[in-house]
Simulated scan of single mutants.
Amino acid sequence: MTGSIDAAESSITARAGIAVARVGVGLMWIQNSGWKTPPDFGEDRDDGLYAQTRLAVEHEVLAPWAWLVEHVVLPNFTFFAWATMLLEASLGAFLLVGLATRFWAVVGIGQSVVITLSVLNAPGEWHWSRFLMVLVHVLLFAVAAGRYHGLDALWRPLWRRSPGRAGRLLLRAS
């Protein structure tokens, strides 16, 4: 084959598959933020996000992470719970529409690692589900998934022509 045609760029099926995967992961994060119920996030009932967060201490995966959760996160749980819910809802929304997808894929990798460090050794956890969350975000980053039927595809030409720093930053994030 002559030339350098990227397989994903040349196949309508591949482009649609990337978009479907991106939308599916976005919906996963939106659903995942839905069970985090303010204002106490389960702290008063010892369930929900609070109970899930405690698993990092009760079923330690990494000692420094368990220490951080026990001494920083749990004493300031309400702040971290709101931050988690807002981060996951934003992650889902941006992936869903395909905007700044590479940036949000990196955020997804980070959040997936945090979840993995918190629950990996908990009873009933299938460890591969956590690793797959990390891997799918790596894939979304690698293929710049928002460029396939997402807002990144629509706005990249505008950002490319933009003389300002914001345009360059958005180009890199997409």
Rank of each mutant, 00 (worst) to 15 (best):
S4N: 13
I5A: 00
D6V: 00
D6E: 08
A7D: 01
E9K: 07
A14F: 05
R15K: 15
G17N: 12
G17S: 06
I18G: 05
N32M: 15
S33M: 15
T37C: 09
P38A: 14
D40H: 14
D46Y: 05
L49H: 02
L49P: 02
R54N: 07
A56C: 02
V57A: 10
E58S: 08
L62M: 07
P64V: 05
W67N: 06
L68T: 09
P75C: 10
N76Q: 03
T78N: 06
F80N: 04
T84M: 06
M85F: 05
G92P: 00
V97P: 06
L99M: 06
F103S: 01
A105Q: 02
G108P: 06
I109H: 10
G110Q: 02
V119P: 09
V119G: 13
L120K: 02
L120H: 08
N121W: 11
A122K: 02
P123F: 12
G124N: 02
W128V: 15
S129P: 04
R130I: 06
R130C: 08
L132S: 13
V134E: 01
V136I: 07
H137F: 12
L139A: 13
L139V: 14
A145S: 14
L151G: 10
D152N: 05
L154G: 10
A166C: 10
R172H: 12
